[in-house]
Each structure stands twice: as structure tokens, then as C-alpha cells.
Design a protein around this nucleic acid. Structure first.
Lengths: 202, 202
DNA sequence: CTGATTCTGTAGTGGTCGCTATATAATAAG
DNA sequence: CTTATTATATAGCGACCACTACAGAATCAG
């Protein structure tokens, strides 16, 4: 009963599959360098079908960003939920970024970091920038809380430390785009943890 | 005598000034988002004059990259030449990246890092990628030499450490583009040095 | 069946891109 | 002056961009 046939000619492709393909194309080539024609060809449909299903390039990209986050992004929230300490969560976040940025069969790097760096569409650039800045702010709040809770030393600079971790995460994604392999980036992640207040570990 | 008038109608603009303007426009907007028309307008000349002086968009961009490096880039070589230790040179490099990425009146971030991230011109992307990768390789060689010379501990992973420093440099540039101020990025640079083998200092 | 509805393929729209043909303006050489 | 040479401005080239008008195809309800 939940799947009642809608009226009219049925769509000849799976919208979710199409969205997944769009994620990979945008991830690999970026927002501006990906044309509607590229997407339609990769999905295997005509251009008007793509517009009927997703509205516009911008709207599709917004769906792509959400879907990418769901499927592929190393999540700060997941790390927090599953690690007992913030120190462990951050180390895990860095290691997962190294792995996720070099997954065989998937584009390298991070869509949020590199898909809209220098575009003629400022709103798209701003969309990803906001996600990055919000992530840093969330991290800063978590660090401040950990300091207050005594997990991290009093006097820890939450603002600087959050920006340091974000910079390292983005640097790892960039290095992956430039060809660094997973082992190298995991070393980068491990090295980065040496600057963490508690030292090298938990 | 060195400045003899060439034959024909003289050029009505200063080529070096024009190049400097092109550096700032490409630095601010990136390779692909900057049109020939944008450049000609910013310089204050017509499009054919720009082509007569610089050949093509690609050729102009190559000159821009060289000029940018000369005028604005924090130089590893300069840091090496002026600092007695590699440790000091790297710290200086990181701090100068923080400053150079947030200079008032100039575009934020680093042209080499962000001007050609996702383009339809693979050769341009490759040009900047090569500069980044070569920089990392140079750093790795310097670290290996410092280990051999006893400045850094035996067993130091030159490959991982070089990629860590490069990742941090690129992360600093990205954060600057996202709005981080100089003081914050200098804290990031200082934090990054805590992962350096010799500890926090020189 | 008819009629309403929705999707799909063809074939465009106007706009911008990098680049250039052409004519004219400005200089030096003779 | 004339002639050669170089720079400039106008105007436009073909290619691609995001996007869509329109007609036909495929499904529904009745």
C-alpha cells in the first residue's frame, strides 16, 4: 500500500542511484567543472529527465552534499558517540579522513573541502564554506567542554586547537588529491596528534 | 641606451603592472573563474592588447604563477638560507604562511594551493599540483639530511613528517580563505610545531 | 476505448567562454 | 612626405554553458 503507482508515465531510472552517481561525479570533478550534460551522460538519462527529477544544478548539488555527508564523510558526531574521550574521537576523525580520502574506487579527497573552491557561483562556495566553518566551531565547543570537564589541561586554547585540527583534516584531503597514499596520510594523522594537549595518546 | 624605442605604435600600458594585477585577480578568483574579459577590465586594456602582450590565458597564468612565487609566496629556500636550523626554517615557513595568507589588501590564502583546484583545464591543475608535490619532496629531502646530520632524531620519518608539514601549510591557506584571522593561524602554526621531532622549539 | 497525467527525446533558447580577423591609430625609419 | 611596424578598438567566430518548449510515449482512472 505504501508504494502506490503514481499516475502518468513512470520514471525510467532510479532516483537514488542517479543521486549516487551525481555524488561521485561532483566529488571527482567539482561543482563548476561538472556540466549538466556530464551528469546526464554518467547517469544514462536525458537532460530534461535530470531537470524533472532534481530541479536545477544547484538543487541537485545541495542534495549531493547531503547524500555525500551521509554516505562518505567521516563524521565528528559518530566519532564522539563511539569514542569515550574527545582525544580518541579526534584521533579517529583524523585517521578516518586519511582512509576516506584514499578509498580505492572512489574519488580522492573530500567533496566538502574541494568541490567548490573557486567558482563563479558564490552561493555554492558559501554552502560548503559554512559546513567547514560550522565543523570547526563544533569542534571548538567540544574542546572547550573537554577542558571544563578536566579531560584536557586547563589553559588549552580551544579556538586555536580546533582550527589546527580542521587545518590538518583539510590538509589531509588536499594531499590525497595530490596523490598521497593512505599509509602516508595515516602517518600525518598520527603526527598531528602529537600536538594534541594530552600528548600522543589517550 | 638600454631603453631604445621599438618601432611601431608603443604599448599604452605597463606590462609588469598588468602582470601584477593579473596575479591578484587570479589569486582572488582562481584560474577558471577568471575570464579574459575580467583581466582586461581589471588592467584597463582591451582584450586583443592582453593577447598581444601575454599570448593566451594559459601562458599568462604561467607567468602569473612565477610572479606570484617571486612576490608573495613564503619561500622554503629563503627560510633555509636565513635560519641556522631546519627546525627554525620550518617554524618560520609556517608562521610566514599564516601571515602571507591573511595580508590586508591582498587576496586570502595561497594561489598555488587554491587557484586551480577543480578545473576543466587539467594541465593548469597539474602545473600547480607539481609545485605542491615538488615542495613536499624538497622538504622531505631536507628533513632526511637533517636526520643524517644529527639535527633531528634518528628514526624520524622524513616522508611522513614532510607530508605533515605540507598538509598543515595547505590547511592554513584554506582556513585563511574561510575567514580565519592571522592570530588564529599563527596559533595553528605554533601548535603544528609541537609535532615536530625536536618538540616545541629549536 | 477516452482523457488526464507524467516522463522522455529532439531541438532548441540566450548567454558566456577563449580567441581572433580586420581596420585604424601611433610610432620609427628613410 | 611615404613606408614599415606595432598596438589598439570593434565586432564577431565556434564551442560550450544551464536550461526549456514542445511533441510524443507510457502509464493511470474511468
Amino acid at each position: 500500500m505504501s508504494v502506490t503507482s503514481p499516475r502518468g508515465r513512470p520514471r525510467q531510472f532510479d532516483r537514488d542511484v542517479a543521486l549516487g552517481i551525481a555524488v561521485e561525479v561532483f566529488w571527482a570533478r567539482g561543482y563548476e567543472a561538472t556540466s549538466i550534460n556530464d551528469l546526464a551522460t554518467a547517469i544514462g538519462i536525458g537532460v530534461p529527465s535530470l531537470y524533472a527529477a532534481f530541479g536545477s544544478k544547484r538543487a541537485l548539488f545541495e542534495e549531493v552534499v547531503a547524500e555525500y555527508t551521509r554516505r562518505h564523510a567521516a563524521s565528528l558526531q559518530t566519532a564522539i558517540d563511539q569514542e569515550p574521550t574527545l582525544t580518541g574521537a579526534v584521533r579517529r576523525l583524523l585517521l578516518e579522513a586519511a582512509a576516506a580520502s584514499t578509498r580505492p574506487g572512489l574519488p580522492r579527497g573530500d567533496l566538502i573541502v574541494s568541490a567548490a573552491v573557486n567558482t563563479t557561483a558564490p552561493e555554492v562556495e558559501q554552502l560548503l564554506r559554512k559546513l567547514r566553518v560550522d565543523g570547526t566551531a563544533t569542534l571548538e565547543a567540544l574542546i572547550a567542554r573537554a577542558v571544563a570537564a578536566g579531560e584536557l589541561p586547563a589553559g588549552t586554547d580551544a579556538h586555536g586547537l580546533a582550527h589546527y585540527v580542521s587545518a590538518t583534516l583539510q590538509g589531509i584531503a588536499q594531499q590525497a588529491r595530490d596523490g598521497a597514499d593512505r599509509a602516508t596520510l595515516e602517518k600525518v594523522a598520527a603526527l598531528a596528534m602529537r600536538a594534541w594537549p594530552a600528548g600522543t595518546g589517550d
